[in-house]
Write a protein that binds this DNA or RNA. Structure first.
Lengths: 344, 344
DNA sequence: GTGAAAGCGCTAACAC
DNA sequence: GTGTTAGCGCTTTCAC
C-alpha cells in the first residue's frame, strides 16, 4: 500500500488516498470537505486511508480552486513593540480558532516596506488584512489599500478609505490626563508622543489642547513633541526640556517614550512627583512597578486585537452589513503616585 | 485592453498579460522569473503590460508547480511575551529580506495547539520551520517534527531530533549569577524559572547547582521553583518563600517572573538589596529602571532571532552542510545595584 | 528566442 | 451516493 508513494519522494495526494480506499477523487474531496452526501462506511474507509498515509490536503491547491486562502495578512510597524505584540497575539488567537492562518510582517515604519508587504499580501491572495500603517496620509499606501479589493480592518488608525477600523480613544486619554494635571495646578505640561501623522498622535494632541482650552490655560506649542516613537526620543526630548529654562512641571508620554523619560529624570536627579509629575499613555509593568508607581491611562490592547479580528472575520464572511464599523475602546485614568502639585 | 478583465471580476492572470503583450504564456513566465533568454524589447513589452494590468503572480499557483512556497512557519509559546516578540521580529526581518513570508502562530504553551499548528504548517507546505516548543519531551510533537521532512531550526530548545538549534547559554547564565551571590556570602538562594522540561529551565537549574557545588555550599531543593512562566507564578513563589521561616536572602528569576517577584517584595515592604538581593535572567526596561536598578544576566534576543533565521535560510537553500548546527549565544552579568551581602 | 501543451493537487458541475 | 471531468494560474519540457 502506498508503494509508489515511497518511490516518488513526494507527499501523498488525494490520488493516493483514493486508490488506497478504492474510491474516486470526488469522494475523497467530499470527505475532506465534510460533504454529508457520503455513506458512512465509505467515509470511514477514506479517513482510515488518509491517516495511514499521513495525508494532509495541500492548502495551495485547495485555495486555487476555492478562491479562498483562509489566510489573513497582518502588518504592524514593529512586532517587537509589546503594544503591537499583545494586539497581534490576541488577533492571531481569534483568527486561528476560526481556521485562518496569519501572515505577519513588520514594516519598521518604512513606507516602502509597507508597499512591499501589501503587494506580498496580494500575491498570496490573503482573504483579509489587519493593519496599522505608519502614516495615515501616505497616498501610495492608501491607494494600494483602496484598490486591493481585500477585506480590511485598520487597527488604531483612521485614513481616507472605506474600511472598518478598531482603535482606542486617544483623545479622551489625553483629555483626562491633561485635565488631571491642570487640576493639580500645572500650567507648563509637556506632551511626548508619536507623530500626528497617525491618529494616536493627532488625537492625543487634540485632547491635550482641548483640556487646556477647557481649563482656560494657554498651552505651549514648544512643549509638544510628536516626532518619534522610540524611548530614545523620549529621553532626548525630556532631557532638553528639563534642563532648559521654563521647564515643564509635568510630562505626558507614550509608554514607549516613557522609558526614556524616566531615564532622563534619573539622569537629572529629579524627584517624582516633587520635581516633575509624570503620566504614561498605556500601562506597563514598568509603570506599575516604578518608584513611585506611575499614574497611567489604561486600555485593553488585548481587547483591540480581539475586536479587530472579530470584525475582520465578519467582514470576510460577508456577515458585517453595509456600513463601516468604527470601534473605539474606552480608556481609564489610573491614578497612582507620580503626580503632585507643582512647586510654587 | 483588458476588456474581458473588467467583466470577469477576477484578478488579471498571466493569460491577460500575454494577450495584451502579444506573447505566449511561456514568455510571460520567463519574464516573471527573470529568465535571461527573453529579448529585451519583448521583456519590456511584457513588463509594461503587467504594470498596466496591475498584475501580480499568484503565489499559490506558483508554488504548486515549483514545489517551493517561499514561506516559513514560526511557532512560539506566546508572541505577546517581549522575549519571543523581539526574537521573532528579527527573524522576520531577515527572512523577509530573503523573500520569505512568515506564518506565525502562538501555541499558548498547549501541546494540542502545537500539533495543530505543525499540521497547519505541513498543509501550507512551508519551506522551513522556526520553533520554540513548550516541552522538549513531548513525544507526539517531536515525532511530527521528525517526520515532517521540512527544514527546521529549534530556537532556545534542544530535543531528541536531528535539527539545528540556536539558543542562549542559560547554564553559564545561572552559573555566573549564582556564583556572584555566593561570593557575596549568600547561602539561601532561591531560583524561580521556567520548567525543566525545556532547556532554559534545565540549564539554569544545572548552572545553579554547579555554582553551589563549586563554592562548596549545599543548595536547597525547596528553594527551586520551576513550574511556571508567568509573573503571577513569580509573585506567589516569592511571597511564600519570603514570609516563611528560613527565607532566602537572594532570588534569581526569569525576566517574566521577576515582575511578580518585585511585586511580592513591595507587598512585603522589603528593601532591595538590604533585605533581599535580586538578579534577573534577561534585561528589560523594568530591570534597568527599577529602584534600585537590577543586576541582570543579559544576552541578545535579537541576535538569537537573526541567527536562527540565517541558519534556517542556509538549511532551506541546502548550503548548510551535513552536520547539525548548535549555536549558543554567550551571556554577560551586568552588575547594578540589587545585590548586597546578606544580613548577618 | 518563443510558442504549445502537459500537469501540479484540488474542487465542483455534471453524469449515472 | 459516487464517478468523471474540466479547469484554477502557473512552470516547464519540448518543439520549432
Amino acid at each position: 500500500m502506498g508503494g509508489d508513494l515511497d518511490r516518488s519522494m513526494r507527499r501523498p495526494t488525494m490520488r493516493h488516498v483514493a486508490r488506497l480506499a478504492n474510491v474516486s477523487l470526488g469522494t475523497v474531496s467530499r470527505v475532506i470537505n465534510n460533504n454529508p452526501s457520503v455513506r458512512r462506511d465509505v467515509r470511514e474507509r477514506v479517513q482510515k486511508a488518509m491517516e495511514e498515509l499521513c495525508y494532509l490536503p495541500d492548502a495551495a491547491a485547495q485555495s486555487m480552486r476555492s478562491l479562498a486562502t483562509m489566510s489573513v495578512g497582518c502588518m504592524v510597524p514593529d512586532i517587537g513593540n509589546p503594544l503591537f505584540a499583545t494586539t497581534v497575539s490576541m488577533a492571531e488567537q481569534v483568527l486561528h480558532s476560526a481556521g485562518y492562518t496569519m501572515i505577519l510582517s513588520s514594516s519598521q515604519y518604512s513606507s516602502e516596506r509597507e508597499r512591499e508587504i501589501l503587494s506580498l499580501f496580494r500575491r498570496r491572495r490573503v482573504d483579509g488584512i489587519l493593519c496599522t500603517i505608519g502614516r495615515e496620509d501616505d497616498a501610495e499606501v492608501l491607494s494600494i489599500l483602496r484598490n486591493s479589493g481585500i477585506a480590511l480592518v485598520m487597527v488604531d488608525r483612521t485614513a481616507d478609505l472605506d474600511a472598518d477600523s478598531v482603535g482606542t480613544d486617544h483623545f479622551d486619554s489625553a483629555l483626562q490626563a491633561t485635565s488631571y494635571l491642570l487640576t493639580l495646578g500645572h500650567s507648563r505640561i509637556g506632551l511626548i508622543t508619536v507623530t500626528d501623522q497617525v491618529r494616536t498622535g493627532r488625537e492625543r494632541l487634540q485632547g491635550f489642547m482641548q483640556a487646556h482650552h477647557n481649563a482656560g490655560v494657554a498651552f505651549e506649542q514648544r512643549l509638544t513633541a510628536l516626532r518619534g516613537f522610540s524611548a530614545e526620543y523620549g529621553y532626548r526630548t525630556a532631557y532638553e526640556w528639563l534642563i532648559g529654562s521654563e521647564a515643564p512641571t509635568a510630562l505626558l508620554a507614550g509608554a514607549n517614550q516613557m522609558a526614556g523619560v524616566l531615564k532622563a529624570v534619573r539622569a537629572l536627579n529629579l524627584k517624582v512627583p516633587e520635581d516633575i509629575s509624570l503620566i504614561s499613555f498605556g500601562d506597563t509593568d514598568l509603570a506599575e512597578l516604578n518608584t513611585p508607581p506611575l499614574t497611567v491611562v489604561r486600555w485593553s490592547t488585548e481587547g483591540v486585537g480581539r475586536t479587530a479580528a472579530v470584525v475582520l472575520l465578519s467582514r470576510m464572511r460577508g456577515t458585517a452589513g453595509e456600513a463601516r464599523l468604527n470601534l473605539i475602546s474606552p480608556v481609564e485614568l489610573i491614578v497612582r503616585r507620580s503626580c503632585a502639585q507643582p512647586k510654587p
